[in-house]
Design a protein around this nucleic acid. Structure first.
Lengths: 201, 201
DNA sequence: AAACTTACTAAACAGTGTTCAGTAAATAAA
DNA sequence: TTTATTTACTGAACACTGTTTAGTAAGTTT
């Protein structure tokens, strides 16, 4: 039946329309400051319509986060170009931290905002495992050249360092270090480099 | 004039009453889910009264954060008991991470929530510099026994690792590692220990 | 052409942070 | 002691928020 097909297609297009508007506003205005009414205005529908396609505002967040994890994964693909495993690890961590500094609002959504209910129900987000496995996969190829006790600790340590640096910056806690504004990015980069140096055999 | 003294005292008592109620509710219910009306109900005053003592909800947050930094500082004083500088550094990082796991809601307020306006205006929070200098001070005494390039990098690296671990846990992102629930705390501890091992000469 | 289904919305509900006019009590001045 | 003034407080309102529901108009099927 062609009509049901078209209906289904239109439904998916509507979902996309909503998500695209939501994503743009979440990034430019922030999640909290974006209201359902704002999104509805943008796409020229009534607020109630959004609830016909998504359960609540949290589900909108969940969907946008999934999109964002794909963008992070694509950043990895773009930045991690070396063949040497250790060099790939360097590029990966730099890519992660760079993503956070280049897209702070997106990073905020993905890693700092409270997890939406659906993420706990579904055991994660779309595209999130792929991004995480990029790290564990890279580590597997060079874990014997690293000083870490095991691969779990290696993954967590590297992720925690990267996430710590980015989130201390985004949430402005790094300011208590009283570094000159134009030096922050450099010190963070140097910290990443130093960490990468210390973990190698 | 005794009356103005008493008035001033009463004013400070009222501020304390409000802050104590706010802190308790921020911790048990979370900042977002605590409304000015909730706080007002708790202390049996009208919501408008709170605005006679604090500019807005953000200033309430700022004040509670100041209190919380003092509690962190006191945790340091309690936990960092060794005399050997390197051992003190170990104890300090463990104390920090432990504070985050023991008081996740307090930690959330202090390090994960967006910075209130007043923190940028006043260049930080009450008691925050003291807590931070506990780290830099400890590092000064053993920086020559560490492999870090310099003290700035050492401080940022250690803080970022600790903060990364705690905040990945609190905001539930650590779940993508698919560790058994009862193992998370152990793996985090092991990661801290491993990091402390790797940074030493 | 009538019956049914789908897509949508206006309006309402219960909540939020915040402001302001008005009141009652405490203090100061007469 | 009485009057004037200052202080401390609040009820009600404003402009928002996420979300639900009853009702409508158009599209589709019979």
């Amino acid at each position: 039946m062609g009509i049901t097909d078209r209906k289904e297609r239109e439904k998916q297009e509507m979902r996309k329309l909503i998500i695209n508007a939501a994503m743009e506003m979440f990034i430019t205005e922030g999640f909290d400051k974006t209201s359902i009414r704002n999104i509805a205005d943008k796409i020229e529908y009534s607020p109630a319509t959004i609830y016909l396609y998504y359960k609540d505002k949290d589900e909108l967040l969940y969907e946008v986060q999934g999109q964002a994890f794909l963008e992070l994964y694509n950043a990895f693909l773009k930045d991690v170009t070396a063949t040497d495993p250790l060099e790939r690890l360097d590029q990966l961590l730099h890519s992660y931290v760079n993503f956070g500094f280049e897209h702070p609002d997106l990073y905020d959504l993905m890693f700092i905002l409270r997890s939406p209910m659906k993420a706990t129900e579904e055991n994660g987000w779309p595209n999130c495992d792929e991004a995480y496995h990029y790290l564990t996969g890279t580590l597997e190829t060079c874990i014997d050249q690293l000083r870490y006790e095991n691969a779990h600790i290696a993954a967590l340590s590297i992720w925690a360092l990267g996430h710590g640096l980015v989130s201390l910056f985004i949430r402005e806690r790094i300011k208590v270090m009283h570094l000159p504004d134009d030096q922050v990015r450099n010190v963070v980069k140097a910290t990443v480099d130093d960490h990468l140096r210390l973990i190698k055999k």
